[in-house]
Design a protein around this nucleic acid. Structure first.
Lengths: 132, 132
DNA sequence: TTATAAATGTTATATTATTACATAACGTTA
DNA sequence: TAACGTTATGTAATAATATAACATTTATAA
């Protein structure tokens, strides 16, 4: 069961922008795009991004300092994320593979550490770029 | 077989510092620490870091913007990296688990994408922090 | 030795992210 | 509804991370 989060005004503006773009967006590009809606300062953007990440509506692509809308409807929380990133065209997509997520969520080693979260980024060339 | 890389002067200074510290170091902290050795500008640090990452002597912890020496002697290149990160004390260690690396190196999905590299970061509480 | 690539030095600047402080809106419950 | 705590907002300043551009030097190898 998925908790319904009522997004605040700024959160909604910023989520809609990222969601519509369909690709990773950088914070200052988001800022530029929402200035006409009254969001003027970086902090307003970062606060909304923090909250959206926290509730799992978006994810941060760490290697790119960019944010993408969650493409996985059943993903409440950003606890287990995996992405494929094309190093040529920079296309990013979320991997939802239940075997992979099961494998990683259950992973443990001899360090005695309990893993509660992971983020995985795969790199390579996408179909289109490979065939060039 | 491991290729021997002859590090340049700056690369050696910076690698030695990171290696001795045994923990992730941030670029500007590195800069501060090597100023007495004549390295004065951020770019000098970033160039050495780039090279060291490229040849696999260090890895970047993407979620922390920090760099750690490779703890795995057989790791020539940063193609397949996995780390465990304690969210309380920020201790980071490299996971070298052949099952895991085999699983991820061979991972493929239906996207038609050929993955040549990955980076995985696990988060949780380390033994010490858990018992507090 | 010569030419080519790799590394260095230096200045300036771009990009990403947070601190600090003040105010407003929202949700609960007395 | 009044009072309270929590969450969100607004604004300015600044900190932290990273790169561009250009000149020069050092190492490598043909």
């Amino acid at each position: 069961m998925q908790k319904e989060h009522n997004l605040s005004k700024n959160q909604k503006i910023i989520f809609d922008l990222i969601d519509k773009s369909g690709e990773p967006m950088k914070a200052y590009s988001i800022l530029f795009n929402v200035q006409k809606k009254g969001i003027k300062a970086p902090l307003q953007v970062y606060r909304a991004l923090d909250k959206l990440v926290e509730i799992g509506k978006i994810h941060k692509i760490e290697s790119r300092n960019a944010f993408i809308a969650c493409q996985n409807s059943s993903c409440q929380v950003s606890k287990a994320t995996a992405f494929s990133i094309c190093e040529s065209c920079e296309n990013v997509s979320e991997i939802s593979n239940s075997k992979l997520s099961k494998y990683l969520s259950n992973f443990s080693d001899d360090s005695g550490m309990k893993y509660s979260k992971y983020n995985l980024e795969f790199f390579g060339l996408c179909k289109r770029c490979k065939s060039k």
